[in-house]
Every structure is written in C-alpha cells, then in structure tokens.
Design a binder for these strands. Structure first.
Length: 327
DNA sequence: CCCGTACCTGACGA
DNA sequence: ATCGTCAGGTACG
C-alpha cells in the first residue's frame, strides 16, 4: 500500500510485495443470526462504504447480493476509533454462505468490528418485545446488523444527513473524501480516504458548499475544527451514561439530539439509542401513539422502553429499513 | 424550556 | 418546461 504525500513505507521483509492484498473468508453460518451484508451497509446507517460498481441504493436486492463493498479506516495502536494512524483498505463481499474480505492488512478483526459480526442476533431479538411490526421487520431483513463505524466520519456524515436523501448523503461523503482526504493505492487501484479532522477543519465553507453541502457546510467545518483543536472528540462520549453522552455530542455544530443518537448507535456501541427521525416519528404516531410525549427526551425514553430497552436501537434499525422499503 | 422560522440543493411529479 | 414539494434536522430568536 502506498499513501500519497507520506514517507515511503519502512523496509520490511514480511512485506516484499506491498500491493498484495491479504484475504480471508468468514463462514456466515458460524455467525449468530447470519448476515445480510447489503441490508447492513445500504440501510442508511453507514455512509462510509462504497461499491465499485457504483450501484449503491439502486434498490435492487438481487444484483446487490454479491457486490463488493470498500472502505478505508485508520488504524492507530490497534484501534479504529481515533481517526489517526495509517489508512487500511478493507473490501468485503457476501455470497450465499461466505463473507469474503480483502485488505492491505490482516483485517478479519476489523471486518468483525465494523460489521458487528459478533453480535448475537437471536439473543438480541429474543430480548425485544413480542410485537407484530418488529416481527415483520426482523423476519424480512433477518441478518441485518448494526454497524460500528469510526466516530468522526459518522459524526460528519450524520451532520450532512439533515433534510437530505440517503443517496445524496452518501455522495457527499464520497465527495469529501475525494476533495479533502488522502488517496491510498492498493492492488493497483486507488481509494480516497475520509478526511481527518485536521484536513476537514482546513476546508472553507465555500469549498464545502461547492460540494453541495448547502447550509450544512459551516456545521461540518466548525465541528471539524472543534475536533481538530482537541477541545472535544465524539469518542469521548463513549464512557458516559447514555443521556449524558447524547448531551455531550450536541456541543458539536449541526448536532442536535437526533444526530447525536445516530452517532451513539452507529459508532459508539450505544445499542439502546433510538434516533427520532421523521420515519420513527411517523411509526410512533401509527403504532405506538402513547409513546409520543412531546419532548424529544421523554418520547425517547418511552419508545426505548417500548422497543425493549437495551437493544432498542436494533429494533429501530430493522423498523426503519423495513418501513422505508415496503411503503 | 418551548416554539416558530429560515436554511442549501437536487430530484421528482404535476 | 417551470414550479412546488420534500428529504434520517438544527440554529437562532
């Protein structure tokens, strides 16, 4: 792997062919609850993967069945959480019974972490209440997993998500990477890397508007600046109790309670977080009207309890994907 | 605290 | 064609 405008990799006898990809295969049958890779990546919870065939969000579940998905994460001291360290390319593809991966490093642990492959789906489902809507959603997309994306990229992409369509949110993240991030090459191909907080903080509002971010442009720039300055980092929310963590995240510009819940759920392992977006609010109106308590905080408490508490975020993600596709 | 309003922009249907 | 509406909301008064 080569990283642009960086020193050449140190000589290493175990890496004579640095463009050679590592590869591996995970038996889906060994995962508790299996896997639906396309639903997991294209359900609007992660915007940090790409399909080289360019067919993301085309709604075709047949053709998407065995597509490759690619992302680049930074590994620092064995962690993918801190937006620092060397970029690592990760590619995955699912056929009927396997999840194949390729990477510039030995990446099985990264794949397992990003796609939450060690979550015990049957146990999670068993912990959610007996509820007709939940049963339908779980049945329809069984194998859909939450993701555990890098916090900074998640923070930025969900700031961009305000009043925006899923496919366009994804396009923005691609544009941010191509415009402000580095490029790594691996196996003869080049991969844009999501920008670091420093790289994004250096962008101007005008540059960001040119990428189509609209009124989100200053939100993204100022939030990147806060993270780059060291004043705060989304990862710092992890150690707090759930509602404190949500409050902590709202200090970033463009982050209200809903976006904060998305970061908690999709990046920081708060599986009880239920982002109250327009879809879930409609769902509450229709299926759980008694949970509408007016304020975000109180409605959040009520719906979290109704969806089973500890894993309410899992239920939310299934319902979100189900209603968004079946209507 | 709670409430109304302005906000970029492209895609889509009338 | 040109226009109104809408999209995983938030900041601000």
């Amino acid at each position: 792997m080569k990283v642009s405008h960086k020193e050449p990799q140190p000589k290493s006898d175990w890496l004579p062919e640095r463009d050679r990809m590592n590869a591996g295969r995970i038996d889906v049958a060994e995962l508790d609850g299996g896997l639906d890779l396309q639903a997991t990546i294209e359900s609007g919870q992660s915007y940090l993967w790409r399909r080289p065939d360019g067919e993301m969000y085309d709604g075709d579940e047949q053709r998407g069945g065995d597509a490759w998905y690619e992302t680049v994460v930074r590994i620092d001291d064995g962690s993918i959480r801190l937006d620092a360290g060397d970029p690592v390319v990760v590619r995955v593809r699912q056929d009927d019974s396997h999840l194949d991966w390729e990477s510039t490093t030995d990446a099985e642990w990264i794949v397992r972490s990003l796609l939450r492959l060690d979550d015990d789906l049957p146990a999670i489902r068993a912990a959610t209440p007996d509820d007709e809507l939940l049963e339908r959603a779980y049945d329809r997309y069984w194998g859909l997993r939450l993701v555990a994306d890098p916090p900074f990229g998640t923070l930025i992409s969900f700031i961009c998500s305000a009043q925006m369509r899923v496919s366009r949110i994804h396009g923005m993240q691609v544009a941010l990477a191509e415009t402000f991030g580095e490029t790594v090459t691996a196996d003869g191909r080049s991969y844009p890397v999501f920008p670091t907080p420093e790289q994004l903080a250096a962008a101007t509002e005008s540059q960001l508007r040119d990428l189509g971010l609209g009124y989100r442009a200053p939100y993204v720039q100022r939030t990147a600046e806060i993270v780059a300055s060291g004043d705060a980092h989304p990862e710092s929310a992890r150690d707090r109790p759930y509602e404190d963590a949500r409050e902590y995240l709202t200090q970033f510009v463009g982050v209200g309670e809903k976006v904060a819940d998305c970061v908690l759920l999709f990046a920081l392992d708060f599986l009880e977080a239920v982002p109250l977006d327009t879809w879930i609010r409609t769902t509450i109106e229709e299926y759980y009207p008694d949970c509408d308590r007016g304020s975000y905080a109180e409605t959040s408490r009520a719906i979290r309890q109704r969806l089973g508490g500890e894993y309410a975020g899992y239920a939310q993600t299934y319902v979100f994907h189900y209603l968004r596709n079946e209507e």
